[in-house]
Write a protein that binds this DNA or RNA. Structure first.
Lengths: 246, 246
DNA sequence: TTTCTTTGTTCGATAATATCGAATTATATT
DNA sequence: AATATAATTCGATATTATCGAACAAAGAAA
């Protein structure tokens, strides 16, 4: 047997993901289209999850993520020792560099920030907790992409597209792939104004005991330039903090 | 047909609930026992959810709630800017009264706490964020129940049951209904040891611009009695804070 | 070490049920 | 009121989830 996966459950999870990505409530029709399943099938799945408050139905009939997911989220973050493990490093990093420091998680497809510390510098642009980050235009995104095989990178890029956020955003897959090569070599990634004009950042991986990489540290700030001593030093501090956590 | 529920999905949701209630990772065997399904069935369901990071497997093989639920939780709470609006009032209230102050959300069926501030008093018993609260035995629960039509109240009580937490817990629907009447009149609810012996609390509604009520402020503490000046004053502060937020 | 015990994972036949399109109802738009 | 769009229900059918049992892996005991 190739497939141990239970299809109806698999589809249900897919529906949750669709609602998560949409970041808003959707109509049954929209969900059915995005999932590629017939309306009636989707209806049955949603109805079942509705009973468990995993899905909620707005007064206007749209479907959204339910309150139970909030409960679960609170429970997960509590039980999450990684966050506790990383948080002190974030504080130290934010304090040492003056930049914002944050931690992200990669599930093979999405980069999600799950903890952050605001630096001492005046203006701060730092991703919110729970935010999904761009793959091709942020240091975090590029770092995680660099760990994937070429074919996977291309398929992910095709799915997500390569939105041009600023004039510096890399929008050509080949250029990105060659940058991923150098990231793989140097062990960390840098972002200079590719997501927001003037915003610079860097990301370094946190290795698990088994060598797998699921988490990364990041810094982000309005540095003078990527060549400035400030930035270089901040990157060094971040890389060593990440190594210590590995 | 009586049943539109998709069984495998229903079971999956049940597994998530079991893991949520357990507040820790469980072995396959434990989950199978609690759910009443054979190990192999549970295994298939968990395996499927594992693929979606809705479930995670610890290095020791135990199963727990996965990172995707954290993402979902963050997405759900994001859609609530209400938290930012309320938080300052909670701090002020906690500081003024010395009791714990918290905010809850009602979705028509469940009362969930979503923010809290610990008061200055020594011993504090205050619901955790993400916690589901009893409907018939807490001030919050009674407050929200008082806004429902009689028939709805009865059906909710039938579904949830009226667990007797302490000797003071109201376990008779008619007694509860008459208390709901007075809550509706006075505009806030009081709890005196119905959930935990000696624990007193109160809840006041936050009205939206359209007059709908989805959120409530609450205080909880170990007051001498509901007639004590401390408590009376705390309730007044809470009621006016809630009115200001409305 | 070997044996015994416990738990996790795989397998396959079978009965059960999820699926899908079409019909129906509800809601919105003209 | 008529039309269009979306939500929900229904039922026959083939698909597939289910379960017990077999197997594997990991631990404990000896």
């Amino acid at each position: 047997m190739e497939n141990k996966i239970i299809l109806s459950v698999d589809k249900s999870m897919r529906l949750i993901e669709i609602l998560l990505e949409a970041r808003r409530s959707l109509t049954l029709k929209e969900i059915a289209e995005k999932s590629g399943c017939p309306k009636s099938t989707v209806y049955g799945l949603l109805f079942t999850m509705l009973q468990h408050d995993v899905i909620r139905q707005d007064p206007d009939g749209r479907y959204g993520l339910g309150i139970r997911l909030y409960e679960c989220g609170a429970a997960v973050s509590e039980s999450w020792d990684i966050s506790a493990r990383i948080h002190p490093s974030l504080e130290k990093l934010a304090q040492q560099t003056g930049a914002g420091a944050f931690a992200t998680y990669f599930d093979g497809r999405n980069v999600i920030s799950f903890d952050r510390c605001i630096g001492s510098g005046g203006l701060q642009v730092i991703p919110e907790v729970g935010m999904r980050m761009s793959l091709h235009a942020t240091a975090q995104g590029k770092l995680f992409l660099s760990m994937l095989p070429r074919s996977k990178v291309l398929s992910v890029l095709r799915e997500d597209g390569m939105t041009q956020f600023t004039p510096h955003t890399i929008t050509d897959p080949e250029s990105l792939l060659s940058e991923l090569d150098s990231i793989r070599v140097q062990g960390y990634a840098i972002e200079h104004g590719e997501f927001r004009r003037g915003l610079m950042g860097a990301a370094a991986p946190i290795r698990e005991h088994d060598g797998k990489i699921k988490y990364a540290l990041g810094i982000v700030g309005l540095f003078r330039s990527v060549a400035s001593a400030d930035f270089q030093q901040a990157v060094e501090l971040m890389v060593s903090a990440a190594r210590d956590l590995s």
